[in-house]
Design a protein around this nucleic acid. Structure first.
Lengths: 127, 127
DNA sequence: TATACATATGTTCAACTGTTCATATGTATA
DNA sequence: TATACATATGAACAGTTGAACATATGTATA
C-alpha cells in the first residue's frame, strides 16, 4: 500500500532529465523577467478600455479632431449620458484630454500612444 | 399654449449660425470617414482579448519563448484548465500559434503585431 | 437670479465573462 | 491495448460591465 505507484513506466533517461531540468530553468528565467503583476494588471486594464465598441467608436471619431459630448452623441447616435459615462472612463485611463470653452468641453486623444495602439490594432484586424 | 417657448434668449446671430453650420459639416465629414461599424467592432473584440490580466500574463510569458500549457500553468500558478481555456481564446483571435511535438503543444505569439501592441500598451502604462 | 444649455453622476438590471470542477480527447510507450 | 501524460471541453456559478433612466451640477446670459 505504501509503495511507489506513481509510474509503471521506466525511470527517466539521463537525456530526459537534462531536458526537463533545462525546461525548469527556462520557466524560472521567464518568471524572473516577467514584469510585476501590478504592471501587467494595469496593462490589461488599459486594453480593457479599448475593448468596447462604443469606446472605440468614440476614440476613432476623435482620431483627427477634438469634439464635445454632444458632437459625439449625435455623430454616433448615442445618448448624451452614455457618451459622458464612457468619456469619464477614457479620461480616467488618460486616453483623452479635454479643455473647456464656454459651456462646451472639447475632448481629444491624449497622446500619440493612443493613436499608435489603435493603428496597430487596425492593422491586425484588417488582414 | 401653442406659442414658441423653446428660447427666451434672442435668436442666434449670423456668426453663431455659421459656427454651428461648420460644426455640422465637420460631424458629417467624420461620419463619412469613420470605418465601418463591423471593423470597429472587430477592433474592440481584439482589444478585449488583451484586456484580461490572465491573458496578458500568458501573452507576456510567451514574449520571447514558445511554451506549452503546463509550462504556463506552473509559471503563472494557474490551473491547467484555465490556461487551456484562455489559449483557446488567444488562438481564435489569432494572437498565438502552436505546433505539436509529441504529447506537448508549444504555443507562441502569432506575429509582430501582437508584440507591438503589447509594447505600445506598456509604454503608456509605464509613465 | 431665473432660464436654457452642456455635461456629469447615481442607480438598477440584463448580459457577459473568467474560474472551477469534472470529464473527454489525443498521444506515446510498455 | 492498457496506462500515464498533455491538453481540451462542457457546465455551473459568481463577479463584472454597459445601457438606460432620472437627476444633479456647472456655465452663460438675459
Amino acid at each position: 500500500m505504501a509503495e511507489d505507484n506513481r509510474r509503471t513506466e521506466s525511470a527517466p533517461t539521463a537525456a530526459e532529465k537534462d531536458f526537463s531540468d533545462a525546461r525548469e530553468n527556462l520557466i524560472r528565467n521567464i518568471q524572473d523577467q516577467q514584469p510585476d503583476d501590478e504592471i501587467l494588471y494595469d496593462l490589461a486594464e488599459l486594453f480593457k478600455v479599448f475593448g468596447d465598441s462604443t469606446r472605440i467608436k468614440i476614440l476613432y471619431s476623435m482620431f483627427e479632431n477634438e469634439l464635445c459630448v454632444n458632437d459625439i452623441a449625435s455623430l454616433l447616435h448615442l445618448s448624451q449620458s452614455s457618451v459622458s459615462h464612457q468619456l469619464r472612463i477614457l479620461k480616467t485611463s488618460k486616453l483623452v484630454k479635454f479643455r473647456r470653452e464656454g459651456k462646451s468641453i472639447f475632448y481629444s486623444l491624449d497622446d500619440e500612444h493612443v493613436r499608435a495602439i489603435i493603428s496597430m490594432g487596425m492593422e491586425h484586424v484588417e488582414e
